[in-house]
Write a protein that binds this DNA or RNA. Structure first.
Lengths: 140, 140
DNA sequence: CACACAATGAGACCAAGTATCAACACCCCG
DNA sequence: CGGGGTGTTGATACTTGGTCTCATTGTGTG
């Protein structure tokens, strides 16, 4: 359901125009991560007349609101994942692309240890975990 | 000194040709991270006749040997950092670009916790820490 | 020395993303 | 209702980071 995305955008004071609704629907229809190219292809397939730029613009908006996040796949490609706006990290299934979110689970200990050893002040971090989701593991 | 890079490449059975030595020297001269564009600009500035392709090829080779690693900066750009071939993570100074390496400091606890909660089997992870190095912090 | 093969540089190409711009939609105000 | 300012849109050009191709140039081995 794209309702959540739309509702969140609405609350952020973003206009809910036709193209935006359509793109939100495309995003909602995918579960797991997707690339910008996926969305562009989807939009093209159904002859929605939405332009590349509009898709990137909506992704930017969503990212600003923390509703979507960019992750870098191990192969270097970029993907976007829809997610909750709170701080968290992503677990990406390398087989099917499913995404799980994990909230902070002890990473602070790691950062403070790293900080102690290096003398750096740590301002932010990025953690991505890659593996196999329960489905893909059993199907294997 | 580019000697270490060259020695490591040599041991990996890679030919040490002229262009490779030159590029290794450029890398060694930078401390901290650099982008491919930096190297290309450096090479151009000194009229070394090395082509873009050769630079990317050497970066690939170095990455294969674990002598260099790609990191994704918070602003989405890619950088390369020279590093030890063992497993570790990078601490990047957002002010000056200095790099520190930290060996595993408790991240396993985080991954196994995440695994327990999500049911995923975790195969690999990527952790990048961004902050300020001691120099930049005091200069601030 | 000759040969096979690896490495090179030039440049075409590609994908992801950004910038520009004219046309258009919407909303508020009168 | 009408008009103007602002925000949004799609087309398209452009930029950046990187790959591919290919003819040419090394280079190590026998």
């Amino acid at each position: 359901m794209s309702d959540e995305l739309l509702r969140a955008l609405d609350q952020a004071g973003v206009r809910l125009t036709g193209p935006r609704r359509e793109i939100a629907a495309l995003i909602a229809k995918r579960n797991g991560h997707f690339t910008a190219a996926d969305l562009i292809a989807d939009a093209g397939k159904r002859r929605l007349g939405v332009g590349r730029a509009t898709i990137f613009r909506l992704l930017d908006l969503l990212a600003e609101q923390g509703l979507v996040e960019r992750v870098d796949l191990p192969d270097g490609r970029h993907a976007y994942v829809p997610c909750e706006p709170s701080h968290h990290h992503h677990l990406v299934c390398v087989a099917c692309g499913a995404i799980a979110e994990v909230e902070d689970c002890g990473i602070d200990a790691v950062t403070s240890e790293a900080s102690r050893r290096s003398g750096f002040t740590i301002e932010s971090h990025r953690l991505e975990l890659f593996g196999r989701c329960p489905n893909c593991r059993s199907a294997n």
